[in-house]
Design a protein around this nucleic acid. Structure first.
Lengths: 378, 378
DNA sequence: TCTCTTGAGACAAACGTTTTTTCACAATAG
DNA sequence: CTATTGTGAAAAAACGTTTGTCTCAAGAGA
């Protein structure tokens, strides 16, 4: 303030005027993570040998002991290759985008952990994004690709999906695997055996003696919905049973759709004695609407759903459901994506193992008084 | 097969023998995303000018028209800076790790979208990870840091958290913000106004005329649990009401804990006329246990919970609850983390706006109206 | 003796940015 | 007519890897 000081002095003064600057500066400087250079120095080899050893490059010719030294040094230092450096050189970032609609749908819990498991196994990083984000930011996928943040995508599509957002992927030739969807051709897919799941659920009701069985399905233009419905009808037909039109609804997969489906069925007159519900959330809606309308489940109506989840055990009554191998789906989706990324050949996988499994809870019961025992046939 | 052809020929023959090779090879080579170099060329400037223009470098001296040209070119090409290149140079990757326990807890849905919103606003990429992953892979956080994949972390801790996994962060001086937790000192935090939420819930019951009010709380050594319990007792005391010991439980925040709490309360004798439940999932457990035991809610017991969620509307009866500003929590957590990353100064934020809000549904009722009005049943 | 091979490893370029430094040129001052 | 100063922009280095090419020595084969 008094006199004009020389430059260096005034800089020092400035520093003093903002005391926190002195403390902060060392605070935010965090220790540099170990680099390949450090590993090489510790193992007393060149950087290139260290790199090739760690990556198990077959072109590297070095003594076993040398390679061992490198690995030991890397372990010792907790070395992890810097993703940016590697990515810059290899044009692959070791991360995959995972786009799911409604992460909070409880039935995704297993799928999610399957995906994470698959990622861990393959040393790949998952980048989760809720599908809704695509609506706010339709460039998300393209940006992710252009920024080189993801090498490929795992996508679970829904009806309301902005298909345009995915066209980008095809145009840019980005590998992607669609989960539970046959609809997008020319892309890879990994799907569950919905047919077997629905058949299991339906047969469960038939085994309990039910004959008047209805179906609460998804929207008519949804591929999965029609597949499930066909499977239901086929199973019924195989038992020589016909399906009453009025007991088959196609309102959708959501909670509210299940509520509505049951409501309409009730309003239309006599109920079936049992319902196969094509998906978990809709089944919870059916249960809830039954409570509202005073329909006693399972006494006067049995309900079984495709897809299990923790929430199924919490509902009233606890929901009998068919548990699908979602964890396996997640794992396979990851490994399939990696294969596709590797060779560019689209694949269509079908998860049959482990097979769908019936989880018996409280929402189904043997059909009331009539203990008619029908011979089983297949 | 017949004669030895010259090299070029035999290569062509090989290609013909593996027809897919011809298609695949170009397939997996995807178009190179636009680079800064391309932008610079299109705008007819050097790479450095392009970079500084796009980053609004104040040290850049260039004509306005030049800068405009650069932006126009970037828009035209849909340029996005390659994350690896930038990260390598700047030592920041523009991504933050988000560690949540149990992503499927429905009450996280808003928190998640708040975080994504905050990330979008700040042009940062969220890397979600379920906390359980830390159990399988305790090095996850350290690896993320060492690989330079995340610049900082958002963490929602729980009781069962492997605290050791977080010590790494402190040691490596990685910025992190804890959500809803006061317990980890020396780290930043963003917390909700639980006190106000519990007070609102409690006052709601008192306003309805309830005087015998109980509390279903979390584990006694959980900071949040004690905070909520204190808030409950303070609100009661402010009305001159004492709290009966037997109506205060501390089983935990989970569904099963709620079930157990109510069960024990019933087994112990007379019930209160209303319950404040310290968290959403436990409240659902209380509701479910009431159904099991034939306790009519809200006729003989009113239940209100801290934290709302879509699932609350689906329960039976629909759960009256206090909606906390989780979306705002998510957004603020992101911006706080970015500030901490910027200057290294820990912060402790308190979300009071928007204020907690009572969502009236069907699980609470005025005391004494017991037989006048029952929820709709057909 | 001379060339070849092989083993064991080192050199150096390249990936796409950001940022410090340098440069060319014109306008002004002396 | 030469120095100085702005102005506008280009050069070049650096970030941490991976990987194609080199080196160097020791032995093999002729």
């Amino acid at each position: 303030m008094q006199t004009r000081a020389e430059d260096d002095e005034s800089i020092a003064a400035t520093a003093r005027a903002f005391p926190e600057a002195e403390q902060v500066s060392p605070d935010i400087r965090r220790p540099r993570p170990p680099q390949l250079r450090d590993v090489a120095r510790a193992a007393d080899v060149s950087i290139s040998v260290a790199s090739r050893a760690l990556n198990r490059d077959p072109n590297l010719r070095a003594r076993e002991t040398t390679i061992e030294r490198v690995f030991a040094a890397a372990r010792e230092l907790q070395y992890r290759a810097n993703a940016a450096g590697r990515s810059l050189r290899t044009r692959a970032v070791g991360a995959i985008g995972v786009i799911l609609p409604d992460v909070n749908n409880p039935f995704f819990s297993e799928l999610l952990s399957g995906i994470e498991e698959g990622c861990d196994e393959n040393d790949v990083m998952p980048l989760f994004g809720r599908a809704e984000r695509l609506n706010d930011n339709p460039h998300l996928l393209r940006n992710l690709v252009n920024e080189g943040r993801a090498d490929g995508f795992l996508i679970q599509p829904t009806d309301v999906f902005p298909a345009a957002a995915f066209r980008t992927l095809a145009v840019d030739r980005v590998s992607s695997v669609f989960l539970n969807s046959h609809s997008v051709d020319a892309q890879s897919s990994v799907v569950l055996d919905d047919r077997a799941g629905i058949a299991l659920a339906t047969r469960h009701l038939l085994d309990l003696g039910h004959r008047r069985v209805g179906f609460v399905g998804g929207l008519p233009d949804n591929d999965n919905a029609s597949l499930r419905r066909e499977a239901f009808e086929a199973t019924m037909a195989a038992m020589g049973l016909t399906v009453e039109r009025r007991w088959v609804t196609d309102r959708g997969f959501a909670f509210a759709d299940g509520q509505r489906a049951l409501g309409e069925m009730v309003d239309a007159g006599e109920l079936p004695s049992a319902l196969v519900v094509a998906t978990h959330n809709a089944a919870l809606g059916v249960l809830r609407e039954s409570l509202t309308r005073g329909i006693d489940i399972p006494t006067s109506l049995s309900v079984v759903s495709l897809h299990d989840s923790p929430a199924a055990a919490y509902s009233w009554p606890a929901l009998t459901s068919v548990r699908m191998p979602l964890r396996e789906l997640g794992r396979r989706a990851v490994s399939t994506l990696l294969q596709v990324m590797d060779d560019g050949i689209p694949r269509h996988e079908f998860i049959t193992d482990p097979a769908p499994h019936l989880v018996m809870r409280e929402s189904t019961r043997e059909r009331g008084l009539s203990r008619l025992h029908t011979p089983r046939r297949d």
